[in-house]
Amino acid sequence: MTAKSRARGDSTRDALVRTAVEVFGRDGYHATRTRTIAAEADVNQALIGFHFGGKEGLYKAALALVSSGISENMAPLMEAIRAELSDGRDTFPSQAARLRYHLPLVHRVTDAFVAIFTSEESRSWARLILREQQDPSDAFDEFFEQSIGKVLTMFAELIGRAQGSSSTDRQVRLTALTIVGQALIFRAASAGARKFLGHPFGSKDVAAIQAVIRRNVEAMLKAGVAA
């Protein structure tokens, strides 16, 4: 195969996967027809079988693209947070001091969640993730472990450290999920949120959402420490 042929094949494969994310997210796995994806990608339908072996393979490739997108968005921040957490500091004079040290790190993560969930970039892949959450496919476990699970595990570790608890503690994990949910609503229920606010999300709205969630998170974590 020539370099030109490989480049053309890669371009075709990329077009099919990106279109698959849109169509599977919009129509759902069972209602989606491969001919629809091929038509919208402007690609010969037979090439889906050639590149992916069929619909299931294309769906897994679409999930893998979403997974890589999540990693690209969150990996730099996750690495920075891990570096902060591994600096050896695990002794604090009080629980309040522990919380003060970790809160800025928690805020960095929640700010990132809000920025991602309010961005247009997240629209198509978030829709596919939400469908997968409601009706998990055979590919869900692998997808979870490679993407969402990594982010949640890191965030639970951060919450646990802020409260002086284990990241595997059920209450810590419930707290982490609840905090993520505060940001996720602006994607999962974006039409209702925009309607309720009366206009599309602008930069000032994103900053305001981030500020509200910071206040909520601080109150939640202080309550958890007090308990």
Score class of each variant (00 low, 15 high):
residue 2 T to P: 13
residue 2 T to A: 10
residue 4 K to T: 15
residue 6 R to L: 14
residue 6 R to Y: 10
residue 7 A to V: 07
residue 15 A to S: 14
residue 17 V to C: 07
residue 23 V to Y: 03
residue 25 G to T: 02
residue 27 D to Y: 09
residue 30 H to N: 11
residue 32 T to W: 02
residue 34 T to V: 15
residue 34 T to N: 11
residue 35 R to P: 00
residue 37 I to V: 13
residue 38 A to I: 02
residue 45 Q to P: 10
residue 45 Q to N: 15
residue 45 Q to W: 15
residue 45 Q to Y: 14
residue 46 A to W: 09
residue 46 A to S: 15
residue 48 I to F: 07
residue 50 F to H: 15
residue 51 H to K: 09
residue 52 F to L: 04
residue 52 F to H: 04
residue 62 A to C: 13
residue 62 A to M: 07
residue 65 L to V: 13
residue 73 N to C: 12
residue 75 A to H: 11
residue 77 L to Q: 05
residue 80 A to Q: 09
residue 80 A to I: 00
residue 81 I to Q: 00
residue 82 R to P: 00
residue 84 E to K: 13
residue 84 E to M: 04
residue 88 G to M: 08
residue 90 D to T: 14
residue 91 T to R: 15
residue 92 F to L: 02
residue 93 P to A: 10
residue 94 S to A: 07
residue 99 L to N: 04
residue 102 H to K: 02
residue 103 L to F: 08
residue 105 L to A: 03
residue 106 V to Q: 00
residue 106 V to F: 00
residue 114 V to S: 05
residue 115 A to T: 09
residue 115 A to S: 12
residue 115 A to K: 02
residue 116 I to V: 15
residue 117 F to W: 12
residue 118 T to D: 02
residue 120 E to V: 13
residue 123 R to W: 13
residue 128 L to E: 06
residue 132 E to W: 04
residue 133 Q to D: 11
residue 133 Q to S: 14
residue 135 D to H: 14
residue 137 S to M: 06
residue 137 S to H: 05
residue 137 S to D: 06
residue 141 D to E: 14
residue 142 E to G: 10
residue 145 E to D: 15
residue 146 Q to M: 03
residue 147 S to D: 06
residue 150 K to F: 04
residue 151 V to E: 14
residue 154 M to P: 01
residue 155 F to K: 01
residue 156 A to W: 07
residue 158 L to V: 03
residue 159 I to K: 00
residue 163 Q to I: 11
residue 163 Q to P: 00
residue 165 S to D: 14
residue 168 T to P: 02
residue 171 Q to P: 01
residue 172 V to A: 03
residue 173 R to G: 00
residue 177 L to F: 09
residue 178 T to V: 06
residue 179 I to G: 04
residue 179 I to R: 03
residue 180 V to F: 12
residue 181 G to F: 01
residue 183 A to C: 09
residue 188 A to Y: 06
residue 188 A to R: 03
residue 192 G to M: 03
residue 196 F to N: 12
residue 198 G to S: 11
residue 198 G to V: 10
residue 199 H to C: 05
residue 201 F to E: 06
residue 207 A to G: 11
residue 209 I to W: 01
residue 209 I to P: 04
residue 212 V to P: 00
residue 214 R to G: 07
residue 216 N to F: 10
residue 217 V to C: 05
residue 219 A to I: 14
residue 222 K to L: 11
residue 224 G to Y: 03
residue 224 G to D: 08
residue 225 V to S: 09
residue 225 V to W: 03
